[in-house]
């Protein structure tokens, strides 16, 4: 039995189709990432899986339980951390945790080993109101609350949105540890760099899954040559490169541009020359290995 089985899931909100026929499976104990931009349908998918909303079509099973028929059982065995911080701001850290432990019929003591690493970091502030915590600490508290009953499947909807880079890194470290406890983790994120940390990922856009594979596998499937260039005036360079007739695609990535050329052209020399003529000085093209975002962009274009 798989931890999660989803078949032909569809969901419509009035006129907009949030999910247009999604199917995938997640193995037990897997760290599965759902990667996509805002509005791709990630939250809708999570809400269907956590029995919060009905799908229009298709079926979804969590640990073999149907999300419509067996929703009560599912609510016993899953942990859910919604995208928005949803704990009680006027209760202290400790009160929040105690409350959720009691609601799930357990105590902090019973599963303390599970949350120890995470909770230790916020324990010094346990009397502080949850509303007065920093973003990173809020998220650790929310994770502790979602974990306190030792769920079989943990759903994390954009857990790192609005969190500083250091806390993000820590957070993913914690997920790796939880994985060792045998907890299946489904995590969604709009950050492509976090995708590399998952066992397998599903790239989702506009309600459709474009590809499911391990992050490495997805990169290996990238079949064009990819070049990186840098220049003084990046804004103008981007515009000029896009005007170049041999350019297939060109996207800005931080301080550089990632470019693919039409017809799988062997050399970037033509483009380098073109840029020089446009007054960008000496431009050096460097061939690089694609990252997840390159793959995402390419899939989006299809």
């Amino acid at each position: 039995m798989k931890a999660i089985e989803v078949k032909g899931l569809k969901k419509k909100y009035r006129k907009t189709e949030a999910i247009k026929g999604v199917s995938f499976e997640v193995d037990k104990g897997e760290l599965f990432g759902i990667i996509g931009p805002d509005g791709a349908g990630k939250t809708t998918l999570f809400r269907i899986l956590t029995t919060l909303i009905y799908p229009d079509e298709g079926e979804a099973r969590v640990e073999g339980l149907d999300t419509i028929k067996d929703y009560k059982e599912i609510r016993h065995i899953v942990g859910y951390m919604p995208g928005r911080f949803s704990l009680y701001q006027d209760l202290s850290v400790e009160e929040n945790l105690t409350f959720f432990a009691t609601v799930f019929n357990t105590t902090i003591k019973e599963n303390y080993h599970l949350i120890e690493d995470i909770y230790k970091q916020i324990e010094p502030f346990k009397r502080r109101k949850a509303g007065k915590l920093s973003g990173g600490m809020k998220q650790k508290l929310a994770l502790s609350c979602a974990l306190i009953h030792k769920p079989k499947v943990l759903f994390l909807d954009e857990p790192t949105t609005g969190v500083d880079p250091v806390s993000r890194k820590e957070f993913w470290g914690m997920l790796k540890k939880l994985k060792k406890e045998g907890i299946t983790i489904i995590v969604s994120t709009p950050y492509m760099d976090e995708a590399m940390l998952c066992d397998r990922i599903a790239l989702i856009s506009e309600g459709e899954i474009m590809k499911i594979n391990s992050p490495e596998g997805i990169i290996d499937e990238y079949d064009s040559r990819l070049w990186k260039i840098r220049g003084e005036d990046m804004h103008r360079l981007l515009k000029d490169v896009r005007e170049y007739e041999g350019t297939e695609s060109c996207y800005a990535f931080g301080d550089s541009l990632h470019i693919t050329l039409k017809g799988g052209e062997e050399s970037i020399g033509g483009l380098e020359k073109f840029a020089e003529e446009k007054g960008h000085g000496k431009i050096r093209g460097e061939e690089i290995r694609a990252n997840i975002e390159d793959c995402f962009m390419k899939l989006m274009k299809k």
């Binding site: 029995t51 919060l52 609510r75 899953v78 919604p82 009680y88 959720f100 609601v103 609350c145």
Partner: peptide, 13 residues
Amino acid sequence: EMGTMEVLLVSPM
């Protein structure tokens, strides 16, 4: 409104 209902619903309560 606060979103806590979402968490509460996904609980045995």
